[in-house]
């Protein structure tokens, strides 16, 4: 698996982590290029189904990141999200989804270097775990290929 390049999907909030990732770029910090960033208004808006869909579509790892507690632009979105993640993570673990492939973090708009670190650690971890064939094997199905056109 020497040539395996992990596909990472990052669901980030507009106000903190997206700005933080922007700062990583403007500070010219180099980090792994395996990440596809998807911007959301708030972590409270990130639906658990989107995480599952990312795995369906072939993601090997997922990052979910937003404002630190008490820093939410909408006052409490990240608190609600935190509760949901605690429960959702338990459920994923229970049905046998590899929760080591999902990384949750708080990255503020001032933490450009933390973002680089989060991405780099995730990429290293996923590289060790290898492609998520377990899920992809289930997701790839002739009927589904037809319905998806």
């Amino acid at each position: 698996m020497a040539d395996f390049e992990p596909k990472i999907v990052a669901f980030v909030c507009n106000w903190c982590t997206y700005a933080g990732a922007d700062l990583t770029g403007t500070s010219r910090i180099k980090y792994a290029t395996n990440v596809r960033i998807i911007r959301f208004p708030c972590t409270g808006r990130i639906d658990y189904m989107l995480l599952l869909k990312a795995f369906d579509e072939g993601a090997d790892g997922i990052i979910v990141s937003g404002c630190h507690p008490n820093d939410c632009h909408y006052t409490s979105g990240n608190f609600h999200a935190r509760r949901r993640w605690i429960m959702f993570r338990e459920l994923c673990d229970f049905v046998g989804i590899d929760i080591n492939r999902v990384l949750f973090s708080w990255v503020s708009a001032a933490e450009g270097s933390k973002w680089a670190d989060v991405v780099n650690t995730t990429v290293t971890r996923i590289r060790e775990l290898g492609p998520y064939t377990e899920y992809q094997k289930v997701a790839k199905h002739p009927i589904r290929e037809v319905t998806n056109g």
């Binding site: 599952l52 959702f88 459920l91 049905v95 009927i143 319905t147």
Partner: peptide
């Protein structure tokens, strides 16, 4: 969007039951 694939198939079944559990959380 079609959140849950319609055919009776492992992925759709898994997603449906996860969704059901989360909505009843």
């Amino acid at each position: 969007p079609q959140w849950i694939p319609v055919p009776s198939h492992e992925l759709g079944n898994l997603e449906w039951h996860i969704m059901r559990a989360v909505h009843l959380m």
